[in-house]
Amino acid sequence: MDAVSNPSAGPGVEKSAGARAAIRCRGLRKTYDGKLEAVRGLDLEVREGECFGLLGPNGAGKTTTIEMLEGLLEPSGGEMEVLGQNWAGQGRQLREQLGISLQETRLSEKLTVRETLRLFASFYAEARPPEEVLAEMELGDKADARVGKLSGGQRQRLAVATALAGNPRLLFLDEPTTGLDPQSRRQLWEVVRRFTRGGGTVLLTTHYMDEAERLCDRLAIVDRGKIIAQGAPAELIRNLGGDHVIEVMTDPPTPGLAEICRRLPGAQAVWPAAEGCQVQVSQLETSLPELLRQLQAQGAGLARLSTRSTSLEDVFVQLTGRQLRDE
């Protein structure tokens, strides 16, 4: 159980005591054209002040889910509630409090960055000064450049900037870091963290494991329109049973390597890897010496030996039997 920390409420926003849900949905489903089931019964609860991630491979239904929650796509079934309201009612009033960045938007190329941001800000009764948002997204030196002249990463950052323009309470970011270089990516993480520190809530989608692991307070792993695991990253990894992964490769290849690994003390799971083996263990200090002893007994030379902490990638592979990336 992770305690919900919600120390500072957003400015001017009265929050009721305890962890209110910023987003809640039950049995959410979407069927395209009456046959393609993109989302098949999703239950989610995003708490106020947290960063929640939807993690999943291409086509998992992340965009479909987030767009239904944004009120841009009509669900085929289920219930949802955003900031305590549902989309049937006062949509405009709700939108004043949301910041949205779609997976793919091509903003007007003839406008400058500053003009674009000013335009988006003008739709909100209360908005942040464009200069300030530009500075935060490190687009200050591009303020007077036409959008058509920006690089892909800069456009991506501008898209996030337009989401921040209206001083939202709840931020929806659909793959905000796809196409960003590592530095811009980390800088965007910083923006997200600052936003949640200020009391804001974030729902983002990603297919980067490391991003989900480091940035999100909690996340849901989505596969084929369903949530296959949900919780804090550390919790998900812990539930997998092993904290460490040993990767080993011998020279020449040892035929019974997988079997040796499986019989190691504390071994949780074994995946044959390229010409070697990966084994997940709970305690390195007992498993590793035993592995080395076994290999020595076999007279096999080590080609490679490495250990790492269990990652979300391992969780995904464990749950689906597939790599996250190759789809």
Binding site: L72, R95, I100, T105, R106, F120, F123
Partner: peptide
Amino acid sequence: QRKLLKRLIATPMH
């Protein structure tokens, strides 16, 4: 086509 209309109606724009 650019999804700009969709982005606009995601704001409180009238």
